[in-house]
Nucleic acid binder design. Structure first.
Lengths: 170, 170
DNA sequence: CAATGATACTTGACATCTCAAGTATCTCGA
DNA sequence: TCGAGATACTTGAGATGTCAAGTATCATTG
């Protein structure tokens, strides 16, 4: 399809459209990489702190954190969902924590397939110490970010999370 | 230091300050969890896509992506830095890719301790196919996010990244 | 040139993680 | 009640990931 070389012809418009699409792709990719980079940095620091201060790991801390808010205990499958992790994975982490006496598996009285995992008293105590430190670390890591910006990030990331969740049903 | 019980005394102010601090802690923690959740969701989808479409993994893709922009090859240590990952880890991933002929280790002529890792022609070809799909996935995942919000996220995350990098020198 | 220390990479021990296959138990219908 | 299918969890193989220790090479100093 030949185009005239008239001023303000379709040529610039076409280029603009293509440029816009290309830019948007670029923006999405760069945004993803930046998101990943930030998360990795923070996660890495939290891991190191957990290791050096408490000789434990992030997934163990995460599992205990889930249990701390569920005094009645959680099923393995519930832990799996909340930790966004495979069931087989939960088995291993729970094994380790149980071996150290921080957690117990109790059989469910109504369904013998189910384990209710609970924090022991010792686990509770230990988690509280870790949680206090953990909160301090996170607050420090985000310390230089103005509250207004934090809220903006919360909002935008909330939207993103919604969008992502919506992709399943669609 | 005793305080008078006068109306509008320091008591409410103190409570406000504590409340503000507490809220800010809460905001930082929630922000961190939300950031982690978003990243995990996206990362998980990209992993699954790489697995089902190309029978490969994210770290392999990541390593090849680094090499694609460095025709002269990269040292193991450079790969380690850019992938934000341990040296020992790079060794394993490179081993796998080399075994499949997607990557080669060439000895550096000036320093025999160094390997220069490069994409093979086959690796190049395969990476380009994957990169095109990968970009599509990411664009789709962020598709519902308005460009304006994407740019806002870029800005805020950029600041966060700066802050985090600054914590080292301080 | 030879000893010393720094660098570049590999290795091995462990802890996550995913996936697929296996076992135990429950549920529901004929 | 009995059997098929669903559910809850475990297991084992394979890929990451960290860390610390080991090997080879370089670089510097005497």
């Amino acid at each position: 399809m030949p185009r005239e070389k008239t001023a303000l012809s379709a040529v610039p418009a076409t280029i603009d459209a293509e440029t816009r699409v290309h830019d948007d792709h670029h923006v999405s990719l760069r945004l993803w990489l930046r998101l990943l980079s930030c998360t990795n940095q923070i996660e890495s620091r939290v891991r190191q702190n957990l290791q050096s201060s408490f000789d434990t790991t992030l997934p163990r801390f995460d599992l205990m954190a889930q249990l701390e808010r569920a005094p009645q205990g959680l099923k393995m499958s519930e832990l799996s969902q909340r930790m966004m992790v495979t069931g087989g994975n939960v088995t291993g982490i729970t094994d380790g924590l149980e071996k150290e006496g921080l957690v117990v598996r109790e059989v469910d009285s109504t369904d013998r397939r189910v384990y209710r995992v609970k924090l022991t008293a010792e686990g509770e105590r230990q988690f509280r110490r870790m949680a206090a430190e953990h909160e301090r670390w996170v607050v420090d890591l985000f310390g230089a970010v103005p509250t207004k910006h934090k809220k903006q990030l919360m909002d935008r990331l909330g939207e993103l999370k919604e969008h992502l969740a919506g992709l399943d049903g669609a």
